[in-house]
Structures are given as structure tokens and as C-alpha cells.
Design a protein around this nucleic acid. Structure first.
Length: 517
RNA sequence: GGCCCGUUCGUAUAUCGGUUAGUACAAGCGGUUUUCAUCCGCUAAAGAGGGGUUCGACUCCCCUACGGGCUACCA
């Protein structure tokens, strides 16, 4: 085979939100294309009009864009030389190719009704045979192999519904080389005469996919393992069309499995087990049911890409954190694992935390600010300036996994507390406490500059003067200022809030606590 | 049921005939911290089972078991 420019495609059908397994498939396609300076194409396989879901196509495009998995050709990314990229818009081409197969004797018309097919399958099952439409059973069905030419012509001309089925050889070994699994072989007697062209005039996946991959000069088909059983069908189609010399290389990716228990990761798992299975939040247009997404759950897109890349692939080194560019460099099929991968939600969070720790304060402020203004509006608090928000991010950063954690970790920096952790008060507040805080407040009022080291000294001095151990009092200071028994660095928090606010809070806290004592 | 693919610590995985079977997440313990988290250190944890091939097998072959996928005029 001559050297061809690498061209791969991601070809989802718009039947609902794109699930992270699909995003991973897209990612591997993308990485492979970029690694080889090739093209990555987004093709929409909307040949099943019955399963079409409003908004799904837009969702797919938006998801890929959010992840940074950008196609350089195809729906949502600008047409290339092989437009259109939506199969419904290519409808007429498929008929032509289906007819070619019929004319060459590799496919045939079939007129069986759904009821007749059902009867045939029931009969075969009852007698212990596989319910297949194959080299044996097709002889007793209504098709252009059993009917005379005249009858067939009459039926077709009169507009009777028909499908076109692939005529499989009766007993032939079909072999293909999968880039991940090596040689895989099937016997045609185990396959059945798949419908290639439906009675509604649309092709099925099998036909459309082969025709389009050929026409779009696809060199590598990288798709989920669920396609492996139908791969021999595709090989046969390439052969019958006479395209074997340009048949793409196949790779069938291991599936994403549920974190625990059996089966592949499904739509339902996410919200049941507390992690998203979709890149973006999705609302079902009919049931209105909402499924959570990584974006809305506070994940960074680069973290999602990183964690997805590691589900079934590894770089062969111990490095785990990879940017998209680094992944492109490191990616190769040799390191794709063959077995299905159980999704690990804990590790997913860990990836995000790693990215969060690496972000600059500017980046964090940018993400946090809109979240913050939502909370501030609801609580009618005056907005703080950007240097204050920067300082908050800095204080809170190492304690968070998601930027969305920031508010819970820092709300007391924006809102003066009205309640005080009763457990701590019960444990630590004693007869010396009012004197201590009065004295501390007095000392803080005169403190300048109001900074960590100075504050630290004042606290220690006050303790010493009153004969109190620092340890007894630190957590109380925290509670009186923040209301909570734990939180960000105490001295940093005091410095940030400033002398005036701190003194007000101490006074307010003392009143409130002694009143409730 | 049939066909196809797979099987290393709980999970993701390294190893591509010779290793004390490594790493990360989770777990446990300890240190750091006023506290929680972070951070650091340590511990425990695996080749499904059985046959071969070989001087030697996690690695190659076969069988069994188990897991997954497919078996639509869905993709």
C-alpha cells in the first residue's frame, strides 16, 4: 500500500448526549491524527431517523470543543473537500452503492415483513438453531434470490417496501488485523445477511460507514470494541466494492466499565454513583431529566482529557500528568490496554485536583469570580476587589479539589459569621475567655502593620500576659472570626480581613457567645 | 445459547522469557498543621485455575473458569 496521509474520523450518531466513552474514542482519534500530522474528521451518522434526538448534534460539537478535541474537517468545524459530513445529507450516494452490490450479485432485495422475520426467528430458535438470516435461511424467505426476476421487478416497481441485504458467503473465513488485538478471524457462517439499505431509503451503519470511509479517504478506523463483531462484514464490503487496497486499518478500543460491578458504563451510572458520565450537563428534551456533566461539576477540560486518556492507555513511563500536546507526542497504539477499564471516580477527582494545584492564581480567579458573584448576589454582600479575591484563592487553593469548592471553603471571608461552632465553644470557652478576647482586641486595635508575623506575636504576647497556653486559644480565635472550627490558615485569614473587620468580628463574637452561654 | 474479545494488588496500569513483580488512586499508620485539607514518610495489597513448551514463564501454546461485547430495517 502506498503511503497515504493519515485521516481518521469520529462518527457519533446524534441519539443523545455524547458519553465519556465516546469522548475518549474521539480523543484517541484526535491524538493519532495529530501525532501523524493527519486529519481528524467529525462525521455525524444520523441514518436512524427514529432515534434522532433534538440538540444531540450541537451537544457533541460543544463537548468536543470544550475538551479541546478539535476536528479540522466536518460538522461544526468547517467543511473540507468531502462535504457533506452528515449522512442524512448523503442519502442518495448510498443507494447507488447498494445497487452496485446487487448488480454484482453480492447483495439482494428482501421483501419480508417484520412479522415474517419474527416468525422465521422464532422457528429457528424453537428448533435450537441460531435465528439468522443467512445462506441457509434466505432460501426460504421472500427475496430476489427466491423470487423470479419478474416478480421482483413488479414488487419494486409497485413501490413495495424492500431492504437490501448483504449476501454473505456460506462458509468462508474472514480475517482482519486489528492494531490493538492483532489477527482476528471470523467464519462467515456465523454472521448473517445484514441489512445494508433500509426500506425508508436510508443506509444502515454498515453500508454508510464503509462508503463514507472510502469516499473520505479514511486510513484508520478507531472505534469502540462493540464494533469488533461487525468488522468482518465491513471487510467483506470493502472486498465486494473492490476497495481492499485502500481499506483502513482497524483498531477496536477497550470499553469503559462501571466502577464496580458488571457491565459497561451507562447513562444511569453517573448520577447513581455520584460522578458524571457526560462531558457537559444534558437535559433530555422529552423527559426533561437532567444528567450531570464534567463541566458543570467543576472539572477542568484538560483534567478530563488527561484522565480519559489514561483509561485504557498509558505512556509506558511513570508520568501521569499530560497536556493535550504532551499526549499527542506520547500517544501510541502499542500502549493501549486490551481489557475494558473500570472507571475510577476517585482517581478522576485526583486528576482535577492536580490541575487545580497547577493553575495560576489568575486562572483560578477567572473561574471563581462568576461563581462568587452568584453567591454574593444571593446574600446581598458588597463585591470585593480583585486583590481580595486573589488572596482568597491563594488561601483556599490547596484545600480544594474543584473551584466549585472555593465558596464553601471561603464564604466566611465574605460574610461575617452569625453562628459559632458549638462543639468548639463547649470544649474551649471558659471563664478566662472573655478577658482574653478583650485584651486581644485591644492589642490588635493598636497593631501596625497588621500582618501575619505581627499578629502571631500579639497573640502569643496576650497569652503570655494572661498566663494562657496558645494552644487553648487558637481554635477559639478561629471560631470567633469565622464561625467554623476549621478552615484556611488562621493568620492569613486575619491579615486578609484586616484590623477593622477582625476587631468588629471579635467583639460581635464575644457578645453572641457570652449571651448564649 | 452461538460467535468474538479479554483476565497482574480493591481500581487504573508497568513488565514485552530470567525483576525483591514497579507506579498512581483508594486503604492503614506516622510526621507536618491550633484544626481540616495540603504536603512528606512508611505499611499492606496482584500474575484466575489446570496442563504444556523451555534450563527458566506474568510474559508463548492448549483447556477450564470468570468478565465484557455482539447476536435489530440501532448505532
Amino acid at each position: 500500500m502506498t503511503e497515504r496521509r493519515v485521516r481518521v474520523r469520529f462518527a457519533p450518531s446524534p441519539t443523545g448526549p455524547l458519553h465519556i466513552g465516546g469522548v475518549r474514542t474521539a480523543l484517541y482519534n484526535y491524538l493519532f491524527a495529530k501525532k501523524h500530522d493527519g486529519d481528524f474528521i467529525l462525521r455525524i451518522e444520523d441514518t436512524d431517523q427514529g432515534r434522532f434526538v433534538q440538540g444531540a448534534e450541537e451537544y457533541i460539537i460543544e463537548s468536543l470543543k470544550w475538551c479541546g478535541i478539535l476536528a479540522n474537517e466536518g460538522i461544526g468545524f468547517g467543511d473540507g473537500a468531502y462535504a457533506p459530513y452528515r449522512q442524512s445529507e448523503r442519502k442518495e450516494m448510498y443507494r447507488h452503492y447498494a445497487m452496485q452490490l446487487v448488480n454484482d450479485g453480492n447483495a439482494y432485495y428482501a421483501f419480508d415483513t417484520p412479522e415474517e422475520l419474527e416468525t422465521m426467528r422464532m422457528g429457528l430458535t424453537a428448533s435450537g438453531k441460531d435465528p439468522k438470516y443467512d445462506a441457509v435461511t434466505r432460501n426460504s424467505m421472500k427475496n430476489s434470490l427466491t423470487l423470479s426476476q419478474d416478480e421482483v421487478k413488479k414488487k419494486v416497481d409497485s413501490g413495495e417496501h424492500f431492504v437490501i441485504r448483504l449476501k454473505l458467503p456460506e462458509n468462508e473465513t474472514v480475517e482482519l488485523t486489528d492494531m490493538i488485538r492483532g489477527k482476528v478471524s471470523f467464519n462467515s457462517s456465523q454472521l448473517d445477511d445484514k441489512v445494508l439499505f433500509k426500506s425508508d431509503g436510508m443506509p444502515t451503519y454498515h453500508l454508510a460507514n464503509v462508503v463514507d470511509d472510502y469516499l473520505m479517504k479514511i486510513t484508520h478506523v478507531i472505534r469502540g470494541e462493540e464494533w469488533l463483531p461487525s468488522a468482518p462484514l465491513h471487510v467483506l464490503l470493502y472486498r465486494y466494492f473492490g476497495w481492499e487496497d485502500v481499506m483502513p486499518n482497524f483498531s477496536h478500543l477497550p470499553l469503559l466499565l462501571k466502577p464496580e460491578g458488571n457491565g459497561k458504563l451507562s447513562k444511569r451510572d453517573g448520577d447513581k454513583l455520584g460522578f458524571p458520565v457526560f462531558p457537559l450537563q444534558w437535559q433530555d428534551p422529552i423527559t426533561k431529566e437532567i444528567s450531570s456533566g464534567y463541566r458543570e461539576s467543576g472539572y477542568f477540560p484538560d483534567a478530563v482529557v488527561n484522565l480519559l486518556a489514561f483509561l485504557g492507555w498509558n505512556p509506558g513511563t511513570e508520568q501521569e500528568i499530560f497536556s493535550l500536546e504532551e499526549l499527542t507526542q506520547a500517544f501510541s497504539f502499542e500502549h493501549i490496554h486490551k481489557a475494558g477499564a473500570h472507571f475510577n471516580p476517585e482517581k478522576a477527582k485526583w486528576f482535577n485536583q492536580q490541575y487545580l494545584h497547577k493553575k495560576t492564581i489568575d486562572e483560578l480567579v477567572q473561574v471563581f469570580t462568576p461563581i462568587l458573584s452568584g453567591h454574593l448576589k444571593n446574600n446581598s454582600i458588597e463585591a470585593k476587589d480583585s486583590s481580595f479575591i486573589e488572596a482568597v484563592c491563594l488561601l483556599v487553593k490547596d484545600k480544594a479539589t474543584f473551584v466549585s469548592d472555593f465558596w464553601n471553603l471561603s464564604s466566611y471571608l465574605f460574610i461575617s459569621p452569625t453562628e459559632y461552632d458549638t462543639d468548639v465553644i463547649k470544649k474551649r470557652w471558659n471563664e478566662k475567655s472573655p478577658t482574653f478576647f478583650e485584651s486581644l482586641n485591644q492589642n490588635l486595635k493598636n497593631l501596625s502593620p497588621f500582618q501575619k508575623t505581627e499578629i502571631d506575636q500579639i497573640i502569643k504576647q496576650t497569652c503570655e500576659t494572661l498566663g494562657i497556653k496558645t494552644g487553648e486559644v487558637m481554635q477559639l480565635i478561629r471560631v470567633i472570626i469565622s464561625g467554623k472550627g476549621s478552615g484556611v490558615d488562621l493568620l492569613g485569614m486575619m491579615e486578609l480581613l484586616g484590623r477593622d473587620e477582625i476587631c468588629i468580628r471579635i467583639e460581635k463574637g464575644m457578645n453572641s457567645i457570652s449571651k448564649n452561654k
